[in-house]
């Protein structure tokens, strides 16, 4: 179990995260927040790259910073910016990282082809990484993070650069992996975590806003999300009164999904809120004023 207690992080005088309390046990955790909310900052503290200004991070009751290499031995990490040596091929790069992770050469040579197959790179094993596309490099990064069969797998925006097909593959892979480990992945894209995360963690105003299952988070907007249809000329006026979540054209009219405190018109259809709705609602500036 990984526990974050009372963690604050400041850069100089600028406070980025305040009073963060989190607990992780096996399963997939989606760290969902817009850019600049502090996801990477939190992740870098979980990976010992950054030291909290205040508070503690414990693994099984021990401070992760004093555990040193014993803790690093347990984690797999894909940074937001995954770098590589350009003249290595993925096989060599994984061999190198396996060595750093303290994996024997023999075990590494057994494991690496399997991992590269898992991320569908078996055809590019001997290709120099400088010739790789962004998606291919990202997949090397994912393979790398799993080399040491980590107890804690931490992925910072792992789906960046993956095409839709690769994203689906990746999601399936993660749910498979999460059965006997902690998987933490950060993203600002709701659909990345919607189908696989057991828990969603949202950060807002430097603090943890939610840490709950998707179902429970969605209940916060229960009875407040509606859909309606109207002519285009009315849309602008409508937006001024209600927070529009999504809009699409249908048969020359506009379908709008929006938030209102209560249904006030007979052609509004109440719908079940989704995680996307909550995300848009929470991170919309002045959303409360728009509600009134």
């Amino acid at each position: 179990m990984l526990t974050v207690t009372n963690v604050n992080k400041k850069f100089g005088n600028e406070s980025i995260l305040e009073d963060i309390q989190l607990e992780f046990s096996n399963g997939v955790y989606g760290l969902l927040a817009p850019n600049g909310a502090g996801k990477t900052t939190l992740i870098k503290m979980l990976t010992t790259l950054l030291y909290p200004t205040k508070g503690e991070i414990l693994y099984e009751g021990q401070n992760i910073f004093s555990m040193g290499e014993n803790y690093r031995d347990l984690i797999g990490y894909l940074p937001q910016q995954f770098g590589y040596y350009k003249n290595y091929n993925p096989y060599q790069y994984l061999q190198y990282l396996a060595a750093l992770k303290g994996i024997s050469k023999q075990a590494a040579n057994e494991k690496i082809p399997k991992l590269l197959k898992l991320v569908a790179l078996e055809d590019a094993i001997k290709k120099k990484m400088r010739k790789f596309s962004g998606g291919m490099i990202q997949r090397v990064g994912i393979a790398q993070a799993m080399l040491n069969d980590p107890k804690i797998l931490i992925l910072d925006e792992p789906t960046a650069g993956l095409d839709p097909k690769e994203r689906v593959r990746f999601r399936n892979l993660l749910s498979e992996l999460a059965r006997d480990r902690i998987v933490i992945l950060s993203t600002h894209i709701v659909s990345d975590v919607e189908s696989i995360a057991n828990q969603i963690i949202m950060i807002k105003d430097k603090q943890v806003l939610f840490k709950d299952s998707i179902q429970i988070i969605c209940q916060k907007l229960q009875g407040k999300v509606f859909e309606t249809e109207m002519n285009f000329d009315r849309v602008q006026e409508f937006r001024r009164h209600y927070l529009s979540l999504s809009e699409r054209q249908e048969n020359g009219r506009m379908m709008i999904r929006f938030i209102a405190e209560e249904g006030s018109s007979s052609n509004w259809k109440q719908v079940n809120p989704t995680l996307e709705d909550v995300f848009l609602f929470e991170y919309q500036d002045h959303s409360l004023e728009q509600l009134k």
């Binding site: 790259l49 690093r72 984690i75 990490y77 770098g83 990282l97």
Partner: peptide, 22 residues
């Protein structure tokens, strides 16, 4: 210098044997 140029610092720093030990 090398890992700064190649941005491999973070991966290397979070391995069991990190860059400082090497």
């Amino acid at each position: 210098i090398q890992n700064k140029l190649n941005e491999t610092y973070e991966v290397e720093m979070t391995c069991k044997y990190n860059l400082y030990q090497i």
